[in-house]
Simulated scan of single mutants.
Amino acid sequence: MTYAGYIGRECVGEISVANRGLNYGDGLFETMRVHRGALPLWPRHLARLRDGVKRLGIALPDPVFIEARIEETIAGTEAGVLKLLLTRGDGGRGYAPPVDAQPVWTLALHPLPSMPAALRLHLCETRLAIQPALAGIKHCNRLEQVLARAEVERAGCEEGMMRDTEGRPACATSANLLVYRDGRWLTPPVERCGVAGVLRGWLLEQGLAEVADLTANDVECADALALCNAVRGILPVSMLGARAWAAHPAITDLQARLAMAYPMFSNPAVAA
């Protein structure tokens, strides 16, 4: 792993124990696919990051400076995963955010791991809290996903489907949910909980998917099920509990359309 940390424009070797991201999860992050020394989805990640800092009231360091450090970090990398973590900065004890905190941010470059071409999905008991103030952005409070992911590991599956506290299908632990029914790809809304995935956003803009309130029965009776995120691309689900799905041409078609726009997804068997 290649790592670098910054306070504003200053490169620092260590993150302080007073960092609010460490103490309270007071921050945001983006996990991005590196392809041939570039981040093809960076504009979409930056747009979501801007939304996040606006909502949380965190200062955003100069994007031009961030982009320059990203270019240095990923130069010569054929394939990988870059994580950008941005916190409010250091502060004293207590929840109240300091007004003069300088944002602290880090870049970490990881290898691109392999993953099965189809996923077995575990139905997680851990639920996502409904919180519109945080819904959509990729904030650092991820204990729900941590608990859900532990369930997935115990079940021996590759991913898990999460529901909100009212029982509606919401997402996977680290991906958006895609349900194919009656010739349409449907994905749950993210205004109450969940993350507005950048790849999900692309699919919606292209008219390849549409937002719909989904029920457990919609998932159970789906003609096909898939997950998507900005590192994995689109991956089919082969099993959820006792329900199994065979390979479906609608998934192959969706993968092909994505690969035409972003060639890095021409091989879908990779994951975050």
Rank of each mutant, 00 (worst) to 15 (best):
T2Y: 09
Y3S: 01
A4P: 00
R9W: 04
R9C: 03
E14A: 08
I15G: 13
A18H: 10
A18Q: 12
L22V: 13
L22R: 11
N23C: 15
D26F: 07
G27F: 12
M32P: 02
G37H: 12
P40H: 03
P43S: 05
A47Q: 14
A47E: 15
R48Q: 00
L49Y: 09
G52K: 14
V53M: 15
V53K: 14
K54L: 13
R55I: 06
I58L: 11
D62W: 00
V64G: 01
I66K: 07
R69Y: 11
E71D: 11
T73Y: 01
T77M: 15
E78Q: 08
G80A: 08
G80D: 08
G80I: 09
V81K: 07
L82R: 12
K83C: 06
L85A: 03
G89N: 04
D90S: 10
G91W: 14
G92P: 10
G94P: 14
V99A: 14
D100S: 02
D100F: 02
A101Y: 04
Q102I: 15
Q102H: 13
W105M: 01
L109T: 06
P113I: 04
P113R: 06
P116N: 00
A117R: 13
A117D: 12
A117S: 09
L121D: 07
H122D: 05
L123N: 02
C124H: 13
T126A: 14
T126N: 11
A129F: 11
I130D: 06
P132G: 10
A133K: 12
G136I: 05
I137F: 01
I137R: 02
C140F: 00
C140M: 10
Q145S: 13
V146G: 11
L147H: 03
L147E: 02
A148Y: 12
A148I: 11
A155I: 03
A155V: 02
C157M: 03
E158T: 01
M162H: 10
M162N: 10
D164G: 09
A170M: 09
C171R: 11
A172C: 06
N176A: 11
L177G: 07
L177S: 10
R181T: 10
G183Y: 06
R184I: 06
W185C: 03
L186G: 04
L186R: 06
P189K: 06
P189A: 06
P189Q: 04
V190I: 01
E191Y: 02
E191P: 00
R192Q: 13
G194H: 08
G194T: 05
V195D: 03
V198N: 01
L199Q: 13
R200M: 11
G201I: 06
L203K: 04
L204A: 13
G207R: 05
V211K: 01
A212L: 00
D213Q: 11
T215E: 08
N217K: 15
D218E: 00
V219E: 10
V219D: 09
E220P: 00
E220F: 07
C221R: 08
A226D: 09
A226V: 10
C228W: 05
G233H: 04
I234H: 04
I234S: 04
P236K: 02
S238D: 12
G241W: 05
W245F: 12
A246T: 07
A250Q: 07
T252I: 06
D253E: 15
Q255R: 13
A256C: 00
A256E: 02
A256G: 00
R257S: 15
N267Y: 00
N267V: 06
P268K: 08
